[in-house]
Amino acid sequence: MFRWAAILFLLFIVGCGQNLEESQGHTNRQDIMNMGLEDDPSTTPTNPRSIERVGDTWGEKEIRDQMREAALTIEGVNVERIILEQDNAWVTVRVEEQLTKEEHEQWSEKVAEKISNAVPDYNVTVKVNAQ
């Protein structure tokens, strides 16, 4: 009889002795549902790439502007067209001089390198048009 009382007493202590509210790592269903919510949703989001800020800090227009600015750092280059498709960028530039085939390749590599340094996420292909 004493053994049964001791076993019941131990089960009671083990079962009632846990305080789950203060244990480390405990989450309830409401915590999980609130994980993605901001504390104060009326403030502007702190993530610069949030969907509400497309066009302000990122997007195709900004990437094209960065590519154009990088190409224009080379003297004598005018950007005619920039086409973006997934991770590919096709850039057409005009140079104000007559070029040989080797010079076309050199200009193309030079402009592609400048653009790739400015926007490394794209595979850049440059077409050079000469006067």
Rank of each mutant, 00 (worst) to 15 (best):
S23V: 15
S42A: 14
I32H: 10
G36N: 13
E21M: 09
G17N: 01
G36F: 14
M35G: 04
I32L: 12
I32W: 13
Q30D: 10
G15I: 02
H26A: 06
G15F: 05
N47A: 09
E21L: 11
N19C: 09
T46A: 04
E52Q: 09
D40R: 04
G15E: 01
V14H: 00
N47L: 11
S50Q: 06
T43S: 11
T46S: 02
P45S: 12
T46F: 00
P48V: 02
R49V: 08
D40V: 11
T44M: 02
D39P: 10
E38W: 08
G36M: 11
T43H: 04
S50W: 06
S42V: 14
T44R: 01
I51Y: 08
V14Q: 00
S50K: 04
T46Y: 01
E21D: 14
E22S: 08
I51K: 07
E21A: 12
D39A: 15
G25F: 05
Q24L: 09
I51G: 05
Q30A: 14
Q30I: 13
R53N: 04
V14N: 00
S50R: 05
E38T: 12
G15R: 02
D40M: 06
L37Y: 12
C16A: 10
R29V: 07
R53V: 02
L20H: 02
Q24M: 01
P45L: 09
G15L: 09
M35T: 09
P48A: 03
H26Q: 06
S23M: 15
D39V: 15
R29G: 14
M33W: 03
R53L: 10
Q24F: 12
Q30R: 05
R49Q: 07
E22T: 10
I32S: 13
G15N: 06
N34T: 15
E22H: 02
Q24K: 02
T44H: 00
D40L: 05
N19W: 05
E52N: 11
I32C: 13
G25S: 07
Q18W: 10
N34E: 13
S42I: 09
L37W: 01
P41H: 01
T46I: 10
D40G: 03
H26V: 14
L20G: 07
D40N: 15
Q30M: 11
N47H: 06
V54L: 13
E38M: 12
S50I: 08
S42D: 13
G17P: 00
E38Y: 13
C16S: 12
D39K: 13
E52F: 03
N47P: 00
Q24G: 07
R29N: 11
M35K: 08
T43C: 08
R53W: 01
C16T: 09
C16R: 00
N34K: 11
